[in-house]
């Protein structure tokens, strides 16, 4: 088991947090993990991404150059990263904001209307958790229960009231991945 994932979107969508949760959960499940953010002259609305490696083996390079999965929360991210995904890998994209189809036919593709679902749940800010749920459902890299435990550690205590909403968002994403798997 060796997964290299890129989470990408625009600043403010919570892509760094998505990566951190998978990394944290991976560590809690006894895997080796690394998390590497893009950083630089970036701001809200600019692009942001992080590369996460979760592995049974000791992790050599923490830099993800040929991801097994990409989760793209907006169109520039899909366009930037889709070409890097390994054959047979996975592309999850936020179809609420991305109005093109991925240009790959040698990978699994999951369209997730993350913003729409998040809006249904009452808060567009959990779009990242919908996409993360879909990612967990499609790959099983870590379990959703561990991600929820990780969320408790990553979120400051005054924000713990938001955990049930995040849990719902994760569950909706999982359902979507399951439905697409079955279909």
């Amino acid at each position: 088991m060796h997964e290299e994932v890129v989470f990408a979107g625009f600043g403010g969508q919570g892509v760094l947090l998505m990566g951190q949760l998978v990394t944290y959960a991976g560590m809690m499940e006894g895997r080796n993990v690394t998390w590497m953010p893009s950083y630089g002259p970036e701001m809200r609305g600019g692009t942001a991404n992080c590369g996460v490696v979760v592995s049974k083996e000791e992790i050599a390079s923490p830099l993800v150059s040929e991801p097994t999965s990409v989760v793209a929360m907006n169109r520039p991210s899909l366009e930037k990263f889709q070409g890097m995904v390994r054959q047979g890998g996975l592309i999850i994209y936020n179809s609420s904001l991305v109005d093109v189809e991925p240009a790959r036919n040698d990978v699994r593709v999951l369209a997730v209307p993350a913003n729409e679902i998040a809006n249904e749940l009452g808060d567009v800010r959990v779009a990242n958790m919908v996409a993360l749920g879909a990612f967990l459902g499609a790959t099983g890299v870590v379990s959703v229960d561990t991600v929820l435990q990780a969320l408790k550690k990553v979120l400051p205590e005054r924000r713990h009231g938001l955990i049930p909403l995040n849990q719902k968002a994760l569950a909706r994403g999982m359902e979507l991945a399951a439905a697409l798997k079955a279909g």
């Binding site: 990394t23 080796n32 993990v33 690394t34 998390w35 590497m36 923490p62």
Partner: peptide, 9 residues
């Protein structure tokens, strides 16, 4: 910078 910015257990 990579070592400084990355997270690892």
């Amino acid at each position: 910078a990579i070592l400084g910015q990355m997270m690892e257990p």
